[in-house]
């Protein structure tokens, strides 16, 4: 039985996000024998198509249109649906990102298909894809299958490793004309709030601060640490509520859910809502003056002490390490 799987790519500032490559690996995991990448956008999308091939797609279909310059569910919906109708895939994968969350329920409705969102692990049992996803804010997991429609799912960033980039791979990148019209929601303006830098949801290392950081200025030392680590800065809700930083940095139940390789929690007490957003990180380090803090229950390594002393010391130590490695 053939098994054709479509991977809908997602780009930011003209480059595909890493989760799109992870989605290709996810398609491989459900035993796709043909992986078709889809790139939607405006202008020349050829280079992005080639990238998808290097990361494991067999061929790529691009749809370029001025109405696809910024994402809207209607614009991307029309373009994606046109490709889906052409290809009649057996499965569709996309990242569980802002765009993935917004677009995939629409497509699933149009296709009359089930959809499993926010998948962190994939198994195949008797030719049927079984998807594992967190429920109750990560306190439990469920295994789900699609019983009606195609194997349609979104994957949580940073959980399924992308395949190794292979420059020797080649495949067709074809462009498809779609007339994208009748957009009822228009993006008038885009205001960037987070500082430029590493994308929180895809970061390998995150330095996050809580109420214990005490002020906006207190976050400066976290940014310095993040800088030497090549990390992103995040925050607990407490820190955001206290206006030490913007809500766009919030990690937790109502903020972002992250799964980095290393999570350094600084002055965070570890409320259950915060743990929901980070407890699946691979290695968790907690720095807190209160040894009874809940955060130490999920941390792999705990440092009890004054964060204003420890964080700058850690920054210096890592600087030294990086220098000696040169």
């Amino acid at each position: 039985m053939s098994n054709k799987v479509l991977v809908i790519g997602e780009s930011r500032d003209g480059e595909l996000r890493n989760v799109s490559f992870e989605a290709i690996a996810a398609a491989k995991k459900i035993n796709a024998d043909e992986i078709v990448g889809v790139v939607l956008g405006a202008g020349d999308l050829e280079a992005q198509g080639e990238e998808m091939i290097k990361y494991g797609a067999d061929r790529v279909v691009t749809v370029a249109h001025d109405n696809l310059t910024t994402y809207t569910s209607e614009g991307y919906g029309q373009a994606a649906l046109a490709v889906i109708n052409d290809e009649s895939p057996d499965g569709i994968v996309m990242g569980h990102t802002s765009i993935g969350k917004d677009l995939t329920p629409k497509l699933a409705s149009k296709l009359g298909s089930g959809l499993v969102s926010d998948v962190v692990e994939i198994d195949v049992d008797d030719d049927k894809a079984v998807f594992t996803r967190p429920i109750y804010s990560g306190k439990a997991f469920e295994k789900k299958i699609v019983t009606d429609g195609i194997a349609f799912f979104t994957i949580r960033p940073n959980n399924i490793a992308a395949l190794e980039r292979d420059d020797s791979r080649s495949g067709d990148v074809t462009s498809k004309e779609v007339d994208v019209t009748d957009i009822r929601t228009i993006i008038k303006d885009v205001v960037r709030k987070a500082s430029e830098g590493v994308d929180l949801s895809e970061a390998n290392i995150i330095v996050a601060g809580g109420r214990g950081v005490k002020s906006k200025e207190g976050f400066d030392s976290l940014y310095e640490l993040a800088d030497v680590l090549g990390a992103a800065v995040g925050a607990s809700r407490g820190a955001c509520d206290a206006e030490y930083c913007d809500y766009s940095l919030q990690i937790g139940q109502t903020g972002k859910v992250v799964t980095p390789d290393l999570y350094i929690a600084v002055g965070i007490s570890g409320a259950i809502q915060h743990l929901a957003g980070m407890s699946n990180s691979k290695v968790i380090v907690a720095i807190n003056k209160d040894s009874e803090s809940n955060i130490f229950n999920v941390a792999d390594y705990g440092l009890v002490g004054d964060l204003f002393e420890i964080v700058p010391m850690l920054t210096e130590e890592i600087k030294r390490l990086k220098k000696s490695a040169l």
Partner: peptide
Amino acid sequence: DVEGVVEIVE
């Protein structure tokens, strides 16, 4: 709210 970016939608 779009991952740290605010879009103004009409």
